[in-house]
């Protein structure tokens, strides 16, 4: 029989703790495939966030660290500056990156740190029980917006990628969605491009935002959750390349 799909070696052969239909598993696989395809397992260091993906090191078979909530870009800075030959990526959720860690991500991008950031946006806090995230869309009900998010009280959904794309230190920012095979293929391409940029020594930060499902706290079936990304989330978080300056020449003073 012809093999049509096989587990990539950097993705460990184990069950995950993620809920059925959760986008994290897909994102993990895309990263693992990228690492294997680029043959960089031996020089990659990953940074796990605080959030549902805190145990990412149980699934990704590379050297990994688990850090304080939101601080991954600072940790990545410390790693990359002292180890320019290593490939450093952080994996951060919307609480980690868009709430508590806004300072760290903005300044890592601002300094043009040569790191890769995978930003999982599922519009809700998963690990703590479904509270509002900065990226929760208007009207969305969560444990802390039980009548639905109201702009007057909670503000508008925060578009961090758009914000970061403004900074000269960010060279590549793209938003993709884990909402179906075609979109997932696009996401894979974006992740790979982000890693390739770092490998090539490109002068700046690369970030891929992945709109991802949280069927449990959206209270939707996995299939409906994927549809909700396409129908609702992409209205607020449009897909596509926000910036790609991968050809930008080296800057020196």
């Amino acid at each position: 029989m012809k093999t049509v799909f096989t587990r990539t070696p950097t993705l460990k052969d184990c069950l995950t703790h993620y809920c059925p239909g959760c986008g994290h598993s897909i994102a993990h696989r895309l990263i693992a495939e990228t690492i294997d395809e680029l043959d960089i397992r031996g020089r990659t260091i990953g940074i796990a966030p605080v959030g549902c993906a805190v145990l990412a090191y149980n699934y990704l078979d590379v050297d990994m660290i688990e850090v304080a909530h939101g601080r991954a870009p600072a940790v990545a800075t410390g790693m990359k500056r002292t180890n320019p030959d290593k490939i450093i990526f952080s994996y951060q959720g919307d609480g980690d990156l868009a709430a508590i860690g806004t300072g760290e991500i903005i300044h890592a991008a601002h300094r043009g740190e040569q790191i890769t950031v995978i930003f999982i946006n599922n519009a809700v806090f998963g690990m703590t029980g479904g509270q509002m995230a900065p990226t929760t869309v208007l009207g969305q009900t969560t444990a802390t917006t039980q009548q639905g998010r109201d702009a007057a009280n909670e503000g508008y959904p925060l578009q961090v990628s758009e914000l970061l794309a403004l900074l000269p230190g960010a060279i590549y920012v793209e938003r993709c969605a884990l909402s179906g095979p075609a979109q997932i293929q696009k996401a894979k391409k974006a992740i790979k491009h982000a890693f390739e940029l770092q490998i090539s020594g490109a002068q700046g930060l690369s970030l891929v935002e992945l709109l991802s499902t949280c069927p449990t706290y959206w209270r939707l079936s996995p299939v409906k959750a994927m549809e909700w990304i396409e129908n609702e989330m992409t209205k607020v978080f449009p897909l596509g390349k926000l910036k790609d300056e991968s050809q930008r020449p080296r800057i020196s003073v």
Binding site: I45, I47, I65, V67, A68, R71, A74, V75, A76, T77, G78, M79, R81, T82, N83, K86, G103, E104, H107, H110, R111
Partner: peptide
């Protein structure tokens, strides 16, 4: 040498460098 954006970032840069 990196001048960090805060002490919070500084200690986490230490965290990252030390881990390697």
């Amino acid at each position: 040498f990196v001048q960090s954006e805060s002490e919070l970032a500084a200690i986490n840069m230490v965290f990252g460098a030390s881990a390697t």
